[in-house]
Computed example of a mutant assay.
Amino acid sequence: MQVQTRVEIFEEIFLVFLGLGTLVGVVVIAYTLYNAYKYRDNGDSKADEDLPTLGELPTGGQGGKKLFLSFGLSAIIVISLVVWSYGMLLVVEDGPDTPDEEALEVEVEGWSFGWDFAYENGIETGGELVVPADTPIWTEVTSRDVWHTFGISELRVKADAIPGETDETWFVAEEDGEYLIECFELCGFGHSGMTADVDVRSEEEFEQWVDEQLTMDITLEDEAEERVTDGFELELVHEENDQFEEDLSFTYADDEFENGSITIGEIEQGGPYELTITSTDDEFETVEETVDFTGPTDETYTLELGAEDDETDDEEEDEAETNDEADEGEDEETDDDNEGGDE
Protein backbone atom coordinates (compact mmCIF):
# COMPACT_ATOMS: atom_id res chain seq x y z
CA MET A 1 0.00 0.00 0.00
CA GLN A 2 1.49 3.30 -1.12
CA VAL A 3 1.51 5.89 1.67
CA GLN A 4 1.82 9.59 0.98
CA THR A 5 4.79 10.86 2.97
CA ARG A 6 5.07 14.08 4.94
CA VAL A 7 7.63 15.30 2.40
CA GLU A 8 5.16 14.76 -0.46
CA ILE A 9 2.35 16.49 1.44
CA PHE A 10 4.40 19.59 2.22
CA GLU A 11 5.80 19.69 -1.31
CA GLU A 12 2.27 19.47 -2.71
CA ILE A 13 1.11 22.34 -0.48
CA PHE A 14 4.15 24.38 -1.51
CA LEU A 15 3.62 23.74 -5.22
CA VAL A 16 -0.10 24.62 -5.05
CA PHE A 17 0.65 27.90 -3.25
CA LEU A 18 3.50 28.63 -5.65
CA GLY A 19 1.41 27.87 -8.74
CA LEU A 20 -1.65 29.77 -7.57
CA GLY A 21 0.43 32.71 -6.36
CA THR A 22 2.22 32.84 -9.70
CA LEU A 23 -1.07 32.69 -11.62
CA VAL A 24 -2.65 35.46 -9.54
CA GLY A 25 0.48 37.55 -9.81
CA VAL A 26 0.59 37.19 -13.60
CA VAL A 27 -3.13 38.07 -13.95
CA VAL A 28 -2.87 41.09 -11.65
CA ILE A 29 0.28 42.45 -13.26
CA ALA A 30 -1.06 41.84 -16.76
CA TYR A 31 -4.38 43.53 -15.96
CA THR A 32 -2.55 46.44 -14.35
CA LEU A 33 -0.33 46.88 -17.38
CA TYR A 34 -3.35 46.61 -19.67
CA ASN A 35 -5.22 49.35 -17.83
CA ALA A 36 -2.11 51.47 -17.59
CA TYR A 37 -1.79 51.28 -21.35
CA LYS A 38 -5.50 51.69 -22.07
CA TYR A 39 -5.99 54.73 -19.86
CA ARG A 40 -2.66 56.36 -20.50
CA ASP A 41 -2.72 60.10 -21.00
CA ASN A 42 -1.84 60.66 -24.63
CA GLY A 43 -3.36 64.13 -24.83
CA ASP A 44 -6.25 63.02 -27.04
CA SER A 45 -8.93 62.67 -24.37
CA LYS A 46 -12.29 64.29 -25.05
CA ALA A 47 -13.69 66.96 -22.75
CA ASP A 48 -16.81 64.94 -21.88
CA GLU A 49 -14.95 61.62 -21.36
CA ASP A 50 -15.51 60.17 -17.87
CA LEU A 51 -11.99 59.33 -16.70
CA PRO A 52 -11.07 58.23 -13.15
CA THR A 53 -9.37 60.82 -11.01
CA LEU A 54 -6.76 60.40 -8.28
CA GLY A 55 -8.31 59.09 -5.03
CA GLU A 56 -11.60 58.07 -6.62
CA LEU A 57 -12.95 54.51 -6.05
CA PRO A 58 -13.11 52.88 -9.48
CA THR A 59 -16.43 51.43 -10.60
CA GLY A 60 -15.46 50.09 -13.97
CA GLY A 61 -18.23 52.10 -15.53
CA GLN A 62 -20.81 49.38 -14.72
CA GLY A 63 -21.81 50.12 -11.16
CA GLY A 64 -18.75 48.32 -9.68
CA LYS A 65 -19.58 44.90 -11.16
CA LYS A 66 -15.96 44.22 -12.06
CA LEU A 67 -14.83 45.23 -8.59
CA PHE A 68 -17.30 42.94 -6.83
CA LEU A 69 -16.57 40.14 -9.26
CA SER A 70 -12.87 40.37 -8.48
CA PHE A 71 -13.60 40.39 -4.71
CA GLY A 72 -15.90 37.38 -5.08
CA LEU A 73 -13.38 35.36 -7.09
CA SER A 74 -10.61 36.23 -4.62
CA ALA A 75 -12.76 35.12 -1.69
CA ILE A 76 -13.61 31.82 -3.36
CA ILE A 77 -9.95 31.15 -4.15
CA VAL A 78 -8.72 32.02 -0.65
CA ILE A 79 -11.44 30.03 1.17
CA SER A 80 -10.92 27.00 -1.09
CA LEU A 81 -7.17 27.20 -0.50
CA VAL A 82 -7.62 27.42 3.27
CA VAL A 83 -10.01 24.45 3.38
CA TRP A 84 -7.75 22.31 1.16
CA SER A 85 -4.62 23.20 3.13
CA TYR A 86 -6.38 22.42 6.41
CA GLY A 87 -7.38 18.99 5.10
CA MET A 88 -3.81 18.26 4.03
CA LEU A 89 -2.45 19.36 7.40
CA LEU A 90 -4.96 17.07 9.14
CA VAL A 91 -3.30 14.17 7.30
CA VAL A 92 0.05 15.37 8.64
CA GLU A 93 -1.42 15.57 12.14
CA ASP A 94 -3.37 12.30 12.15
CA GLY A 95 -1.00 10.22 10.07
CA PRO A 96 -1.71 7.79 7.24
CA ASP A 97 -4.77 5.56 7.39
CA THR A 98 -2.97 2.21 7.44
CA PRO A 99 -3.48 -0.99 9.49
CA ASP A 100 -1.52 -1.12 12.74
CA GLU A 101 0.39 -4.23 11.66
CA GLU A 102 1.88 -2.29 8.73
CA ALA A 103 3.29 0.46 10.96
CA LEU A 104 6.33 0.43 13.25
CA GLU A 105 6.17 2.05 16.70
CA VAL A 106 9.29 3.49 18.33
CA GLU A 107 9.68 5.31 21.64
CA VAL A 108 12.15 8.20 21.45
CA GLU A 109 13.77 9.60 24.58
CA GLY A 110 15.98 12.67 24.52
CA TRP A 111 18.64 13.37 27.13
CA SER A 112 21.51 15.80 27.49
CA PHE A 113 22.88 15.26 24.94
CA GLY A 114 21.69 12.30 22.86
CA TRP A 115 18.77 10.14 21.74
CA ASP A 116 17.65 6.64 22.77
CA PHE A 117 15.20 4.50 20.79
CA ALA A 118 13.03 1.62 22.06
CA TYR A 119 11.12 -0.58 19.61
CA GLU A 120 7.84 -2.31 20.38
CA ASN A 121 9.55 -5.72 20.11
CA GLY A 122 11.92 -4.85 22.96
CA ILE A 123 14.98 -3.81 20.94
CA GLU A 124 16.77 -0.72 22.24
CA THR A 125 19.39 1.37 20.45
CA GLY A 126 21.26 4.56 21.21
CA GLY A 127 22.41 7.08 18.64
CA GLU A 128 20.88 5.24 15.66
CA LEU A 129 17.31 4.67 14.55
CA VAL A 130 17.03 1.78 12.06
CA VAL A 131 13.74 1.67 10.12
CA PRO A 132 12.38 0.02 6.96
CA ALA A 133 11.66 2.04 3.84
CA ASP A 134 8.08 2.74 2.66
CA THR A 135 6.69 1.95 6.12
CA PRO A 136 4.84 4.37 8.45
CA ILE A 137 6.99 4.99 11.53
CA TRP A 138 5.11 6.22 14.60
CA THR A 139 7.24 7.82 17.31
CA GLU A 140 6.34 8.70 20.90
CA VAL A 141 8.77 11.41 21.93
CA THR A 142 9.67 12.39 25.49
CA SER A 143 12.65 13.67 27.48
CA ARG A 144 14.62 12.36 30.43
CA ASP A 145 15.78 15.72 31.78
CA VAL A 146 15.14 19.10 30.05
CA TRP A 147 13.16 20.27 27.03
CA HIS A 148 14.41 19.05 23.65
CA THR A 149 12.89 18.94 20.15
CA PHE A 150 13.20 15.83 18.00
CA GLY A 151 13.54 16.72 14.32
CA ILE A 152 14.50 15.21 10.97
CA SER A 153 14.68 18.08 8.47
CA GLU A 154 14.91 15.96 5.32
CA LEU A 155 11.78 14.02 6.30
CA ARG A 156 9.86 17.11 7.56
CA VAL A 157 9.57 15.68 11.10
CA LYS A 158 9.52 17.66 14.33
CA ALA A 159 8.14 16.90 17.82
CA ASP A 160 8.72 18.40 21.26
CA ALA A 161 10.48 16.24 23.84
CA ILE A 162 9.18 17.37 27.23
CA PRO A 163 9.88 15.59 30.57
CA GLY A 164 6.77 13.80 31.83
CA GLU A 165 4.88 14.26 28.55
CA THR A 166 4.66 12.40 25.24
CA ASP A 167 4.37 13.95 21.80
CA GLU A 168 3.39 11.61 18.95
CA THR A 169 4.41 12.07 15.35
CA TRP A 170 5.09 9.94 12.26
CA PHE A 171 7.09 9.79 9.08
CA VAL A 172 7.75 7.61 6.04
CA ALA A 173 11.12 7.35 4.30
CA GLU A 174 10.78 6.32 0.66
CA GLU A 175 14.43 5.68 -0.15
CA ASP A 176 17.19 3.75 1.59
CA GLY A 177 19.92 5.85 3.13
CA GLU A 178 20.86 7.86 6.20
CA TYR A 179 19.16 10.97 7.55
CA LEU A 180 20.20 13.26 10.38
CA ILE A 181 18.29 13.63 13.65
CA GLU A 182 18.85 16.94 15.42
CA CYS A 183 17.64 18.80 18.49
CA PHE A 184 15.83 22.04 17.62
CA GLU A 185 15.47 23.30 21.20
CA LEU A 186 18.41 25.10 22.83
CA CYS A 187 19.03 22.67 25.70
CA GLY A 188 22.55 23.33 26.97
CA PHE A 189 26.21 23.48 26.06
CA GLY A 190 26.04 20.21 24.09
CA HIS A 191 22.98 21.18 22.05
CA SER A 192 24.82 21.46 18.72
CA GLY A 193 26.18 17.93 19.09
CA MET A 194 22.88 16.32 20.07
CA THR A 195 22.46 14.31 16.90
CA ALA A 196 21.69 10.76 15.80
CA ASP A 197 21.26 8.88 12.54
CA VAL A 198 18.20 7.43 10.84
CA ASP A 199 19.31 4.34 8.94
CA VAL A 200 16.62 3.49 6.36
CA ARG A 201 16.92 -0.03 4.96
CA SER A 202 14.93 -2.22 2.65
CA GLU A 203 12.32 -4.51 4.21
CA GLU A 204 14.58 -7.56 3.83
CA GLU A 205 17.63 -5.81 5.31
CA PHE A 206 15.56 -4.48 8.20
CA GLU A 207 14.21 -7.96 9.03
CA GLN A 208 17.77 -9.28 8.96
CA TRP A 209 18.86 -6.50 11.34
CA VAL A 210 16.00 -7.37 13.72
CA ASP A 211 17.05 -11.04 13.70
CA GLU A 212 20.61 -10.01 14.52
CA GLN A 213 19.44 -7.86 17.43
CA LEU A 214 17.28 -10.67 18.85
CA THR A 215 20.09 -13.22 19.03
CA MET A 216 21.31 -14.63 22.34
CA ASP A 217 24.53 -16.66 22.75
CA ILE A 218 24.93 -18.56 26.04
CA THR A 219 27.97 -20.53 27.18
CA LEU A 220 28.17 -22.72 30.31
CA GLU A 221 31.43 -23.44 32.15
CA ASP A 222 32.44 -25.10 35.40
CA GLU A 223 34.70 -23.59 38.05
CA ALA A 224 37.75 -24.79 36.14
CA GLU A 225 36.55 -22.86 33.07
CA GLU A 226 35.84 -26.10 31.24
CA ARG A 227 32.74 -26.33 29.05
CA VAL A 228 29.77 -28.09 30.66
CA THR A 229 28.11 -30.34 28.10
CA ASP A 230 25.45 -32.34 29.98
CA GLY A 231 23.40 -32.62 33.14
CA PHE A 232 21.53 -29.31 32.99
CA GLU A 233 18.42 -27.52 31.67
CA LEU A 234 18.06 -23.83 30.79
CA GLU A 235 14.80 -21.87 31.01
CA LEU A 236 14.02 -18.32 29.83
CA VAL A 237 10.82 -16.53 30.92
CA HIS A 238 9.92 -12.93 30.08
CA GLU A 239 9.37 -10.88 33.24
CA GLU A 240 6.11 -9.53 31.76
CA ASN A 241 5.00 -12.81 30.20
CA ASP A 242 1.40 -12.43 31.40
CA GLN A 243 1.03 -9.18 29.43
CA PHE A 244 1.61 -10.81 26.03
CA GLU A 245 -0.81 -12.90 24.01
CA GLU A 246 1.84 -15.53 23.31
CA ASP A 247 3.73 -17.51 25.93
CA LEU A 248 7.24 -16.05 26.17
CA SER A 249 8.82 -18.96 28.06
CA PHE A 250 11.50 -21.16 26.48
CA THR A 251 13.26 -24.29 27.72
CA TYR A 252 16.45 -25.83 26.33
CA ALA A 253 17.90 -29.23 27.27
CA ASP A 254 21.62 -30.03 27.35
CA ASP A 255 21.46 -31.95 24.09
CA GLU A 256 20.48 -28.69 22.30
CA PHE A 257 23.84 -27.19 23.26
CA GLU A 258 26.97 -27.67 21.18
CA ASN A 259 30.06 -28.05 23.35
CA GLY A 260 28.39 -26.10 26.15
CA SER A 261 27.15 -23.25 23.93
CA ILE A 262 23.84 -22.40 22.30
CA THR A 263 22.71 -19.64 19.91
CA ILE A 264 19.06 -18.69 20.45
CA GLY A 265 17.43 -16.92 17.52
CA GLU A 266 13.79 -17.94 17.81
CA ILE A 267 12.77 -15.29 20.37
CA GLU A 268 10.94 -12.43 18.64
CA GLN A 269 10.25 -10.28 21.73
CA GLY A 270 13.08 -8.64 23.60
CA GLY A 271 13.09 -7.21 27.09
CA PRO A 272 14.04 -8.52 30.56
CA TYR A 273 14.07 -12.30 30.89
CA GLU A 274 14.47 -14.48 33.97
CA LEU A 275 17.15 -17.08 33.20
CA THR A 276 17.28 -20.28 35.26
CA ILE A 277 19.83 -23.07 34.87
CA THR A 278 19.04 -26.22 36.85
CA SER A 279 21.07 -29.40 37.22
CA THR A 280 19.26 -32.57 36.14
CA ASP A 281 21.52 -34.78 38.27
CA ASP A 282 22.02 -32.41 41.23
CA GLU A 283 25.67 -31.98 40.34
CA PHE A 284 25.55 -28.18 40.03
CA GLU A 285 23.89 -25.42 41.99
CA THR A 286 20.92 -23.63 40.38
CA VAL A 287 21.74 -20.39 38.56
CA GLU A 288 19.15 -17.58 38.54
CA GLU A 289 19.91 -14.40 36.61
CA THR A 290 18.09 -11.58 34.79
CA VAL A 291 19.02 -11.08 31.14
CA ASP A 292 18.32 -7.66 29.60
CA PHE A 293 17.62 -8.88 26.07
CA THR A 294 17.45 -5.56 24.18
CA GLY A 295 20.13 -6.30 21.61
CA PRO A 296 22.71 -8.95 20.64
CA THR A 297 23.51 -10.82 23.88
CA ASP A 298 26.55 -12.99 24.63
CA GLU A 299 26.71 -14.36 28.19
CA THR A 300 28.89 -16.95 29.93
CA TYR A 301 27.68 -18.57 33.17
CA THR A 302 29.73 -20.58 35.66
CA LEU A 303 28.08 -23.67 37.12
CA GLU A 304 29.31 -24.27 40.68
CA LEU A 305 29.36 -27.71 42.26
CA GLY A 306 26.43 -28.58 44.50
CA ALA A 307 26.67 -28.91 48.30
CA GLU A 308 26.86 -32.73 48.22
CA ASP A 309 29.69 -32.65 45.71
CA ASP A 310 31.49 -30.09 47.86
CA GLU A 311 31.16 -32.38 50.93
CA THR A 312 32.44 -35.33 48.91
CA ASP A 313 35.41 -33.30 47.76
CA ASP A 314 36.08 -32.20 51.36
CA GLU A 315 35.90 -35.81 52.57
CA GLU A 316 38.30 -36.88 49.86
CA GLU A 317 40.67 -34.09 50.82
CA ASP A 318 40.43 -35.02 54.52
CA GLU A 319 41.02 -38.68 53.71
CA ALA A 320 44.02 -37.76 51.61
CA GLU A 321 45.43 -35.65 54.44
CA THR A 322 44.87 -38.49 56.93
CA ASN A 323 46.64 -40.92 54.65
CA ASP A 324 49.51 -38.52 54.27
CA GLU A 325 49.79 -38.13 58.05
CA ALA A 326 49.70 -41.90 58.51
CA ASP A 327 52.42 -42.33 55.93
CA GLU A 328 54.52 -39.74 57.68
CA GLY A 329 54.01 -41.54 61.05
CA GLU A 330 55.09 -44.87 59.56
CA ASP A 331 58.14 -43.26 58.05
CA GLU A 332 59.10 -41.82 61.45
CA GLU A 333 58.69 -45.24 63.19
CA THR A 334 60.81 -46.88 60.52
CA ASP A 335 63.51 -44.31 61.02
CA ASP A 336 63.40 -44.87 64.80
CA ASP A 337 63.70 -48.64 64.37
CA ASN A 338 66.63 -48.19 62.05
CA GLU A 339 68.38 -45.96 64.56
CA GLY A 340 67.79 -48.53 67.36
CA GLY A 341 69.22 -51.29 65.20
CA ASP A 342 72.34 -49.30 64.54
CA GLU A 343 72.95 -48.87 68.24
Score class of each variant (00 low, 15 high):
Lys46Val: 04
Gly122Glu: 07
Phe206Cys: 02
Asn241Gly: 07
Ala326Tyr: 08
Ala224Arg: 02
Asp309Ala: 14
Gly43Tyr: 06
Gln213Gly: 02
Asp247Gly: 14
Val92Leu: 15
Gly231Phe: 04
Arg6Lys: 15
Asn35Trp: 01
Ser153Asn: 10
Thr169Asp: 06
Asp242Thr: 08
Thr125Asp: 03
Asp327Gln: 08
Pro132Glu: 03
Ala47Leu: 12
Ala253Phe: 06
Ile152Ser: 04
Glu256Ile: 03
Val16Leu: 14
Ile77Thr: 13
Pro136Asp: 00
Leu248Asn: 09
Glu124His: 10
Glu317Leu: 06
Ala307Arg: 03
Ile262Ala: 03
Arg144Ser: 05
Gly63Phe: 00
Lys66Asp: 03
Glu289Leu: 15
Val210Thr: 00
Phe117Asp: 05
Glu174Gly: 06
Leu236Gln: 05
Gln213Thr: 02
Asp292Lys: 08
Glu109Lys: 04
Tyr273Lys: 02
Leu18Gln: 07
Glu311Trp: 04
Trp170Ser: 05
Val16Asp: 10
Glu315Ile: 13
Glu165Val: 02
Phe257Glu: 11
Val146Phe: 01
Leu18Ser: 06
Thr334Met: 06
Asp247Tyr: 13
Tyr39Arg: 06
Leu236Val: 09
Asp314Tyr: 07
Glu182Arg: 09
Arg6His: 13
Asp167Asn: 15
Asp242Ile: 04
Glu289Ala: 15
Ser45His: 15
Val83Asn: 02
Glu289Trp: 15
Val198Met: 11
Tyr34Asp: 07
Glu109Ser: 02
Asp199Thr: 14
Glu128Thr: 10
Gly329Gln: 08
Leu20Cys: 12
Glu49Cys: 12
Thr302Phe: 14
Asp176Pro: 12
Ser45Cys: 12
Glu235Met: 03
Val210Met: 00
Glu56Ala: 08
Ile29Gln: 15
Val92Gln: 14
Thr53Lys: 08
Val200Leu: 06
Gly260Ala: 14
Phe117Pro: 08
Lys158Met: 13
Glu268Lys: 11
Thr251Phe: 06
Tyr273Ala: 02
Glu203Asp: 12
Thr280His: 02
Val146Tyr: 01
Pro99Glu: 04
Gln243Pro: 10
Leu15Ser: 13
Asp97Met: 05
Val200Trp: 03
Glu239Met: 12
Trp209Lys: 00
Val131Cys: 03
Ile76Asn: 01
Leu220Ser: 15
Ser153Cys: 07
Ala75Arg: 10
Val146Trp: 01
Thr286Arg: 11
Asp116Phe: 11
Val237Leu: 14
Gly21Arg: 05
Glu240Lys: 11
Phe150Thr: 04
Ile13Asn: 10
Thr135Asp: 06
Arg156Tyr: 14
Thr302Ala: 13
Glu239Tyr: 04
Gly265Pro: 05
Glu266Leu: 09
Ile79Asn: 13
Glu245Asn: 14
Ala326Asn: 13
Gln213Asp: 00
Thr195Cys: 09
